[in-house]
Lab assay of single mutants.
Amino acid sequence: EELVKLQGERVRGLKQQKASAELIEEEVAKLLKLKAQL
């Protein structure tokens, strides 16, 4: 659960930094994978 929170914050940070869409999608995919494991 802690990992999900951390990953969510990372995604939010990337969006604020206007990171590339590919990078954000990659991180979102990791986030969804972590959530699925809960």
Rank of each mutant, 00 (worst) to 15 (best):
A19E: 06
L38G: 15
G13L: 14
E27V: 00
K30S: 05
I24Q: 14
L32W: 08
L31P: 13
E22P: 10
L6E: 13
L31F: 03
R12H: 11
K30A: 09
K18N: 08
K33Q: 11
L31S: 11
Q7C: 01
E27C: 00
G13T: 14
E22D: 11
V11T: 07
L23Y: 04
L23M: 15
E26W: 01
E9H: 01
L31T: 09
I24G: 09
E26V: 08
K35H: 02
V11H: 06
E25S: 11
L38V: 06
L32K: 13
G8V: 13
V11K: 05
V4P: 01
Q7K: 01
L34M: 13
G8A: 13
L14E: 12
R10Q: 08
L14N: 02
E9T: 05
L3A: 07
L31V: 03
K5I: 03
Q37M: 10
L38F: 02
V4I: 10
Q7P: 01
Q37E: 15
Q37Y: 02
I24H: 14
K18H: 15
K35G: 15
A19T: 06
E26L: 09
V4A: 06
V28E: 15
E9M: 05
E1I: 07
K15D: 04
R10W: 00
V28A: 14
L32C: 13
L3S: 09
Q16W: 02
K15V: 08
Q16G: 05
L3T: 10
K30E: 13
I24V: 10
L34P: 14
L38D: 11
L3F: 04
I24R: 06
V4E: 07
A21K: 12
E25Q: 12
G8Q: 14
Q16M: 11
K35P: 15
L31C: 06
E9R: 02
K15H: 07
A29C: 03
S20W: 00
K5V: 01
Q37G: 14
L3Y: 01
E2R: 01
G8M: 13
L3W: 00
R10T: 11
G8K: 15
K35F: 00
E27L: 00
I24F: 12
L3D: 02
E1G: 02
A21L: 09
L14K: 06
L31N: 15
Q37F: 01
A19L: 02
E27Y: 00
L32V: 09
L38I: 03
A29W: 00
L31H: 07
E25W: 01
E9Q: 03
R10E: 09
Q16H: 07
K15I: 11
K15N: 07
E2V: 00
A29H: 05
L32P: 13
K15G: 04
L32I: 08
A21P: 14
A19V: 07
L34G: 07
L34E: 13
S20L: 00
Q37S: 12
E25P: 06
Q16P: 05
A21Q: 11
E26G: 07
L6A: 14
Q17T: 11
A29L: 02
K15C: 05
K18E: 14
R10L: 10
G8L: 11
V4S: 05
K5C: 02
S20C: 08
E2W: 00
E26Y: 05
L32D: 14
L3R: 05
S20R: 10
E22G: 10
A21S: 12
A21D: 13
I24D: 12
L32E: 15
K18G: 14
L14D: 05
Q7S: 03
A19H: 04
E22A: 12
Q37A: 14
K15A: 08
L6V: 12
R12I: 09
E1H: 00
E27F: 00
K35I: 04
V28S: 13
K33G: 07
R12N: 10
E26H: 15
E2G: 00
Q17P: 03
E26K: 14
L32S: 13
Q16T: 08
V11Y: 01
K35N: 15
E22V: 12
V4D: 10
V4H: 02
V11E: 12
G13Y: 07
V11W: 03
K18A: 11
V4M: 08
K5F: 03
E25R: 09
A29Q: 12
Q17G: 09
E9P: 01
Q7L: 02
Q7D: 02
I24S: 06
L38E: 14
G8W: 02
L3G: 02
L34Q: 12
G13A: 15
L31K: 11
V4Y: 12
E1P: 00
L31A: 08
A19S: 06
G13R: 11
R10N: 06
L23W: 02
Q7F: 00
Q37R: 07
E27D: 11
K18I: 03
V11N: 04
E1L: 01
K33R: 08
K18Y: 04
E25M: 06
L14S: 08
S20F: 00
L31R: 07
E1V: 01
R12F: 06
K33C: 02
G8P: 05
E25N: 12
K15R: 08
Q16R: 08
R12V: 10
L38S: 11
L38M: 14
E26N: 10
L14R: 04
G13H: 12
Q37P: 13
L34S: 10
E2S: 04
S20A: 11
Q17F: 03
E27K: 01
Q17M: 12
Q16S: 11
G8T: 14
V28W: 04
G13I: 14
Q17A: 13
E2P: 00
L31G: 09
Q17C: 00
E1S: 00
V11P: 10
L34T: 09
E22T: 13
L23N: 09
R10K: 15
Q7Y: 01
E27H: 03
L6S: 07
E2D: 15
V11M: 08
A21T: 10
K35M: 15
Q17K: 09
R12G: 13
L31W: 06
L6I: 03
L23P: 11
R12M: 05
E22L: 07
E9A: 06
E27P: 06
V28L: 04
K33S: 12
E9N: 11
E2Y: 02
A29K: 04
I24N: 07
L32H: 12
K35T: 15
R12K: 11
K15E: 14
E27S: 04
L23A: 10
E25G: 09
E22R: 10
Q7M: 02
V4G: 05
K33N: 06
K15W: 03
E27A: 08
E1K: 07
G13F: 12
E9G: 04
K30G: 03
K33F: 04
A19W: 03
L6N: 10
E25C: 04
Q16L: 09
S20M: 03
Q17H: 02
V28N: 12
E25I: 01
L14Y: 02
G8Y: 04
L34H: 09
R10G: 05
K15M: 14
E25V: 04
K35W: 00
V4R: 02
R12Q: 13
L3Q: 14
E25T: 10
L3N: 04
V11C: 00
L3M: 14
L6D: 12
A19Q: 06
G13Q: 15
E26A: 15
E1N: 15
Q16Y: 03
E22Y: 04
V11Q: 11
R10S: 06
Q16C: 04
K35A: 15
E9I: 01
E1D: 03
A19C: 10
L14M: 12
Q16D: 13
A21C: 06
G8N: 09
L3V: 03
K5M: 07
S20E: 12
V28F: 03
V4C: 02
L23K: 11
E2I: 03
A29V: 04
K30C: 03
G13S: 14
A29I: 01
A19R: 05
L34V: 09
V11A: 06
E9L: 02
I24Y: 13
Q37K: 11
L23G: 07
K35E: 14
K33E: 15
E9Y: 00
